[in-house]
Simulated scan of single mutants.
Amino acid sequence: MPDRAGGKAGAGEVFAVFLKLGLTSFGGPIAHLGYFRDELVTRRRWLSDAAYADLVALCQFLPGPASSQAGFALGLMRAGWRGALAAFAAFTLPSALILLVFAMTAAAIAGPVGTGALAGLKIVAVAIVAQAVWGMARTLCPDRARAAIALGAVVLLAFVPGAWGMVGAIALGALAGLVLGPGAGGAVGGPVAMPVSRRAALAALGAFVALLVLLPLVAGFSPVLALVDSFYRAGALVFGGGHVVLPLLQAELVGPGHVSQEAFLAGYGAAQAVPGPLFTFAAYLGAVQGQGPGGVLGAALALAAIFLPGFLILTGVLPFWDRFRAMARAQSLMRGANAAVVGILGAALYAPVFTGAIGDMRDFALALACFLALMLWRAPPWAVVILAASGGAGLALIG
Rank of each mutant, 00 (worst) to 15 (best):
I128V: 15
S332D: 01
G71K: 12
P29L: 05
G294T: 13
G316C: 07
L19R: 11
A337H: 02
F311W: 02
A53G: 11
L303W: 00
L395F: 03
A108P: 03
M136S: 02
I149Y: 01
A347Q: 14
A147P: 04
V254D: 03
N338A: 12
G75H: 07
C370I: 04
F371N: 14
L333Y: 04
I358H: 06
P293T: 15
D363L: 04
A174N: 02
L215P: 01
G80A: 14
A388M: 03
L248D: 00
D229G: 00
A110E: 15
L151R: 00
V129G: 02
V224R: 09
P63T: 12
L205Y: 06
Q69M: 14
I149L: 06
A70H: 10
S95W: 04
F36K: 12
A300S: 14
S260E: 11
D322L: 04
A132S: 14
A137Y: 10
G242R: 04
I306R: 06
F221P: 00
V155H: 07
G240K: 10
L21Q: 02
A299K: 10
A388G: 05
A11W: 15
P63F: 08
Q131F: 07
L97Q: 01
L47P: 01
Q291G: 04
L285H: 00
S197N: 13
A304N: 13
V155W: 02
G10C: 13
T355P: 03
G206H: 05
G64N: 04
G185A: 10
A396P: 03
L180G: 08
G292M: 12
R325E: 00
L225A: 08
V317H: 03
G34R: 11
L246Q: 06
R335T: 09
A326Q: 12
A187P: 08
I344A: 03
M375T: 15
P319H: 13
A9D: 10
W134Q: 13
G290D: 06
D38M: 03
G220V: 12
L19I: 10
M361T: 13
E262R: 15
A66H: 10
A87S: 08
A282V: 08
G359V: 12
K20Y: 13
P319C: 15
A369L: 14
Q331E: 10
A305V: 13
A234N: 01
R4M: 14
R362M: 09
F61Q: 08
V384C: 13
D38T: 08
G295C: 10
W134A: 15
M166S: 03
I123T: 14
S25W: 00
F91P: 02
Y284F: 14
